[in-house]
Amino acid sequence: MAKLGLKCLTIALVALLSGTNIYGQDKKIIVAQDGSGDYKTVQEAINAVPDFRNATTVILIKNGNYKEKLNLSASKKMVKLIGENPEKTVLTYDDYAQKKNSFGEAMGTSGSSSFYIYGDGFAAENITFANSSGPVGQAVAVWIASDQAVFKNCRFLGFQDTLYTYGRGSRQYYKNCYIEGTTDFIFGSSTAMFENCILFCKKGGSYLTAASTPDTTKYGYVFKNCKITGDAPENSFALGRPWRPYAKTVFINCELGNMIKPAGWDHWGKESNKQTAYYAEYKNTGPGYKPDKRTDWSQQLSDDEAKTYNITQVFRGWNPVQ
Rank of each mutant, 00 (worst) to 15 (best):
K3T: 12
L4Q: 15
G5D: 15
G5F: 12
L6T: 15
T10P: 00
T10L: 13
L16A: 15
L17D: 09
G19K: 07
I22C: 07
K27A: 14
I30L: 14
I30W: 07
V31W: 00
V31I: 00
Y39E: 00
K40M: 06
N47L: 09
P50A: 09
F52E: 14
F52M: 10
N54W: 09
T57P: 03
V58F: 02
K62A: 09
N63M: 11
G64F: 03
Y66P: 00
N71W: 09
L72I: 13
K76A: 01
K80C: 11
L81H: 03
L81M: 08
I82V: 12
I82T: 10
N85H: 10
K88A: 11
A97Q: 10
A97K: 08
F103K: 11
M107L: 15
G108D: 04
D120Q: 06
G121Q: 05
A123P: 08
A123R: 10
N126G: 06
I127M: 01
T128C: 04
S133R: 01
G134A: 06
P135N: 11
V136I: 10
G137P: 00
G137T: 01
A139G: 08
A145K: 13
A145V: 12
S146N: 07
D147E: 07
D147Q: 06
Q148C: 09
A149V: 06
A149L: 08
C154G: 02
R155S: 11
L157D: 11
F159I: 07
F159V: 10
Q160I: 12
D161S: 12
Y164T: 05
G167H: 01
Q172S: 08
Q172T: 05
K175D: 12
N176V: 01
C177W: 06
I179S: 03
I179M: 04
E180W: 03
T182R: 14
T182L: 07
D184M: 08
F185N: 07
I186H: 05
F187S: 13
S189W: 02
E195V: 11
N196D: 11
C201L: 11
K202V: 03
K203Y: 11
S206D: 12
S206E: 15
Y207K: 14
Y207S: 14
S212R: 12
T213L: 04
P214D: 08
T216M: 06
V222R: 02
K224P: 09
K224V: 13
C226Y: 05
I228M: 08
I228L: 13
D231A: 04
D231W: 05
P233M: 05
L239A: 02
P242C: 03
P242L: 00
Y246P: 04
A247E: 01
A247N: 03
I252R: 06
I252P: 07
L256T: 02
L256V: 01
G257P: 00
N258W: 10
N258I: 08
A263P: 04
G264R: 01
W265C: 05
H267G: 05
H267C: 13
G269R: 02
S272I: 14
Q275T: 13
A277S: 15
K283L: 15
P291T: 01
P291I: 00
D292I: 07
D292R: 14
Q300C: 14
L301V: 06
T308H: 09
T312C: 04
V314L: 00
F315H: 01
P320R: 02
Q322V: 15
